[in-house]
Amino acid sequence: MKKSLKYLLLVPGIVMLVVFLVMPLLSTIMPTVFDQGFSLKAYIDFFKDPYYVQIFMRTLRVSLIAAIVCIILGVPTSYFISRCHPKWRGLLMAISIFPMLTNSVIRAFAWINILGKNGVINTILMNLHIIDEPITMLYTEFSVLIGTIYLFLPLMIITLVGVMENIDNDMMEAAESLGANRLTAFFKVVLPLSLPGIIVGSVLVFTGALSAYTTPSLLGGTKNMVMATLINQKSTVLGDWTGASVIALIMIITTIVVMKVLNYIAAKLDKRGESNA
């Protein structure tokens, strides 16, 4: 095949990308920056409105806390799974992934049953006379957070188990023989070696949480809107498509910034020779 001809192979892919990604993206961006000439007024207005800023900050906060909690819960769980006999490892992985196999609406309803005023937790606490009045857990930021963590923890675990499986057990034993107890060995050897997995997992959880719609809309109610639910409200309820586009773009930029920052941190912390950089 001639050299110039082989670029023809790229045509179908490029056409797909232009028609289904670049063009829609441009048609989303254009109205937000052109208002009788180039202007960033729509964005400035967004960040001037305390209500929107509150939603933006809530979205960031929920995503960030979800990512951190997923790291804290995911790291020990994944380490345990990765050290299990392969026979048990498969089973434990299946159990941890299981929530992902159910529909997110159903999962959200399950949490409504658990967290609601007449839900499982309140009923137990009331019957034990620990509390007299039911605690409001549902339709708060807390319930959104719980639902999000539940939704994305499996992603963190899958990512981390994959990375941790490749850490040779000899490495832990070497650390132990040099005078490290198990915990020290874990923090000095396993954790630094898992860092690439933790970063990837965090990006997945953070971006997933940032754009999640079903969980926050069902568990957060109208008082605890996030960016994704705000887009829906702007576009379908208020018919403000430009406003929705502004929010969409802010989310895209936020995602890119967060990924860049995490990758930068990863590169700073994880240096094991040029060949790996």
């Binding site: 040779d168 000899d170 034993e173 023989s177 630094p192 240096k271 094991r272």
Partner: peptide, 14 residues
């Protein structure tokens, strides 16, 4: 406080 050398060396790659 015993010194160990493994078949795989088990050096810490990081």
């Amino acid at each position: 406080n015993f010194g160990l050398v493994f078949q795989s060396y088990a050096l810490f790659p990081h």
